[in-house]
């Protein structure tokens, strides 16, 4: 498989603070590669180095064979970049923004309309509205259209779905899937763990380090502990009581359940149940479940 992006031993400090340390990964051609991690993990630093906006302290990275330092001018032509903060011109209309970006890249809206059609179509009826007056979801669609208007080979998106509601997030990921089919390589960062499953491969990042890189399925299969989902009437009491269980290892709330691991190789479900009954719990439900990415992330953090 062709490597579209190669990142080698990337490190960057801001003053005394290490933002990222020895980052290595490769992204295949027309793959959706996710950088998954909380704020402060180093996602934006990696993205800004990749997009030639800041320099790494050490390390090397290439995009489709071009070096981010030496060939930065060429790089900027082949990538589309959507920064985390909305950075289009608020005082220009939807249409003016798109036209501006097309012109800067020496192209026109008409020339590449096919690529953005599905996305732009959803905001086209507002094309005379100023960008600053758009709703969050519409701004996001306009920003994506502007990042795509010069038909980039690689699309780099820094937290495109942060602060966006669950419905708009789903729509946005549907759009990314369609772009991938058009042979565009996509690097996308997100703090939402559930979005990992929508990527082909992901890097789980925490405190400037990559904890694991793999397909979402394989990351889940690497979770070797037996995981139990436990429910009872009072979830806060359940959490506190489970921590007192003699073989307690970890307990984290997930919606109305608590995901629990014990120190035993195979957890004694009957024993846990009796323990909870003795602590006055009612409507207890315990079942073994498969881990999700968030379980894996927390396991790697601890």
């Amino acid at each position: 498989m062709n490597k579209s992006v190669i990142v080698n031993n990337l490190s960057k400090k801001y003053g005394e603070t290490k933002a990222i340390e020895n980052i290595n990964f490769e992204v295949n051609n027309s793959e959706i590669f996710g950088l998954i991690g909380p704020d402060g993990a180093g996602k934006s630093t990696i993205i800004r180095i990749l997009t030639s906006l800041i320099l790494a302290d050490s390390g090397k990275c290439t995009l489709n064979g071009l070096d981010v330092v030496k060939d930065y001018k060429k790089i900027r032509k082949i990538i589309g970049y959507m920064p985390g903060r909305f950075s289009l011109y608020q005082d220009l209309t939807v249409e003016e923004n798109l036209k501006f970006f097309a012109t800067v890249f020496g192209t026109s809206i008409e020339e590449n309309y096919d690529l953005i059609k599905d996305i732009y179509h959803q905001i086209e009826s507002f094309k005379k509205r100023r960008a600053g007056k758009l709703s969050g979801g519409m701004k996001q669609k306009l920003a994506l259209s502007c990042a795509l208007i010069h038909k980039p080979e690689i699309l780099v998106l820094d937290e495109p779905t942060t602060g966006v509601d669950a419905v708009s997030r789903k729509e946005f990921w549907d759009m990314l899937k369609k772009l991938k089919e058009k042979d565009i390589t996509i690097i996308v960062s997100t703090p939402y763990m559930d979005e990992a499953s929508l990527c082909d491969r992901v890097a789980l990042i925490q405190k400037g380090n990559i904890m694991q890189i793999n397909t979402p399925e394989k990351i889940i299969n690497n979770f070797t502990k037996e995981l139990l989902s436990i429910k009872s009437k009072n979830i806060y009491k359940l959490l506190k009581d489970l921590r007192k269980y003699p073989e307690y290892r970890s307990a984290f709330p997930f919606g109305q359940n608590i995901h629990f691991t014990s120190n035993e190789t195979i957890a004694d479900i009957e024993n846990i149940k009796n323990f909870l009954i003795n602590n006055g719990h009612q409507n207890i439900d315990i079942k073994a479940i498969k881990a999700n990415i968030e379980d894996c992330f927390m396991e790697l953090m601890t």
Binding site: P38, T162, Q206, L239, F252, P253, E294
Partner: peptide, 16 residues
């Protein structure tokens, strides 16, 4: 939206 961008363990501590 008190927990936007917070890591999954801290997010749960926040809910406690």
């Amino acid at each position: 939206e008190p927990t936007g961008g917070v890591d999954p363990i801290t997010r749960r501590q926040f809910w406690e």
